[in-house]
Amino acid sequence: MSNSSSTYSISVQASTEHLSEVRDFVAKHASEFGFAPQDVDDIRLAVDEAYTNIIKHAYKNDRQKSVDIELGYNSQKFWISLLDTGDAFDPSNYSKPDVRQKIKEKKRGGVGVYLIRKLMDDVEYQTKGSVNEIRMTKKR
């Protein structure tokens, strides 16, 4: 088995306008990695949710800010990191959403973090200095 690995990165403005560009970037590399279409779809959605959360929660819709997206893979796994310098997300607040209850209260949102965990094999959050990182991994 080869030990070779590849990494790629882009930096995008924190705006929902760039969502499809971000999705296409990760989907292209996930396909090249050899994932089945369902796995590519999972990664595309997980990255969409993570990027949308940064725009809304870390940066509170300040489109002057930017998000760095890095991805890489080796023979066993594919990972994507999104880095921002906004408000840190506290994963201890995370719980499985009760959609029935949310509907009753006419609440939307709050389901993205759960989706990311369902879609990816591993999700880690960390903050170093002013930089927050969410790193999502999917195994081959």
Binding site: L19, R23, R44, L45, D48, E49, T52, V99, K102, I103, K104, K106, K107, R108, G109, V111, G112, L115
Partner: peptide, 17 residues
């Protein structure tokens, strides 16, 4: 072709009404 949770959220917000 594609839906993210922001799209689901719209259905969540209006179904009760």
């Amino acid at each position: 072709d594609y839906i993210a949770s922001a799209g689901l959220g719209v259905f969540m917000a209006y179904i009760e009404d």
